[in-house]
């Protein structure tokens, strides 16, 4: 039963398959394969992984744009796909900020009309003041409401998208690569804006990105996905101290450290080859084709996601063999160690 004690979001063994045609033959593509995760009120969960690992599909399922093939998505204990009004209300409490800022607003409507849409779909009263207030809150001039999206810059468009996502006061906002298309200084501004808004409004974020530094800056916890599966889940402090899955380590070593001396001296784990096709995923551990530590058992047996230490889960047969990381990239959230936090 729904109650305040349940986590805001629970994803239980969610699976999504697409029917695709490859070389004239019908095949099933498993974009997301048995993902479970949870998210508390006011928390930010970062999801990282390469392109094509199912991050976006997971995001679309969480907000209810796609229906999972299998598994459940619960908010405060209630299924978002429950029939009738209950399900609709639950789905309405989730919003999303999209990757492409210019494509996420109807080019033929004013920015104000786009921002007001979630509010107008609900009741429709006093939208004008609410839009002006919300635009101001995300750092835009309220007069921008009268403009068309293409008259705004990319950063402004993304701020407007954030305003639209937040205007109906959702409990969860999913960011699907929402800063990926912005330049680096704008990324920092938007991240700071998101942190401020979270403090003001208590919104939870599901922050999906391939940019590890950004995810580490904004998230409380991090989930690493590979080929539709969760391979590691831990707090951001643990993750920046020592990731345990070889894939996470390779992701970490792919991010540059600002200091060239440290950058040259720290251990690097380079991955060979591409992500295998999700149409025909490798046997056993899906990462074994690219893993530098793979042995026979990895190709035969699939490692389960198991708990190692405090709040650290990893799906690997030999997490203890994973190379250690001595250098830490941008500090975890809340330590005050990085400059962007205080900007």
């Amino acid at each position: 039963m729904p109650s305040e004690n349940r986590p805001l979001l629970e994803v239980e063994g969610v699976r999504k398959e697409f029917q695709v045609e490859s070389r004239g033959e019908k095949a099933r593509l498993r974009a997301v394969d048995g993902v479970s995760l949870h998210l508390a009120h006011g928390e930010t969960l970062g999801i990282v992984g390469e392109s094509g690992c199912g991050k976006s599909t997971l995001a679309r399922m969480v907000v209810g744009l796609e229906r999972p093939t299998d598994g459940r998505i619960l908010t405060e204990g209630g299924d978002i796909w429950a029939p009738g009004k209950a399900g609709r209300t639950r789905r309405a409490s989730f919003q999303m900020v999209f990757q492409n800022p210019s494509g996420s607003m109807n080019p033929r409507r004013s920015v104000g009309a786009s921002v007001a849409e979630p509010l107008r779909a609900r009741d429709g009263s006093k939208t004008r003041q609410a839009v002006a207030a919300m635009l101001e809150r995300v750092g835009l001039n309220p007069d921008f409401a009268a403009r068309r999206p293409h008259q705004l810059s990319g950063g402004q468009q993304q701020r407007a998208s954030i305003a639209r996502a937040l205007i109906s006061n959702p409990s969860l906002v999913v960011h699907d690569e929402s800063i990926a298309s912005l330049d680096i200084s704008l990324q920092a501004q938007i991240l700071n804006l998101l942190l401020d808004l979270q403090q003001e409004m208590g919104t939870s974020y599901l922050f999906i990105s391939h940019d590890l530094a950004a995810v580490q800056m904004i998230s409380h916890r991090i989930v690493v996905m590979y080929l539709g599966e969760v391979v590691e889940a831990t707090t951001v402090e643990e993750f920046s101290r020592q990731p345990l899955h070889p894939y996470s380590v390779s992701l970490r070593s792919a991010t540059l450290v600002a200091d060239p001396k440290r950058e040259r001296n720290r251990p690097h784990v380079l991955l060979k080859g591409d992500v295998p096709s999700p149409l025909d995923p490798p046997s056993g551990c899906r990462f074994h084709t690219r893993c530098p530590l793979a042995v026979d058992i990895c190709a035969r047996e699939k490692p389960q996601l198991r708990k190692i230490g405090n709040a650290h889960m990893v799906a690997c047969h030999f997490p203890e063999r994973t190379p250690t990381i001595t250098e830490a990239v941008p500090g975890p959230r809340g330590t005050g160690a990085n400059a962007t936090e205080t900007a």
């Binding site: 907000v63 999209f98 494509g103 996420s104 109807n106 979630p118 609900r122 998208s161």
Partner: peptide, 10 residues
């Protein structure tokens, strides 16, 4: 994406 956004808006 604005189509998805409108669907999300309810």
């Amino acid at each position: 994406e604005y189509f998805d956004a409108a669907r999300l808006a309810g």
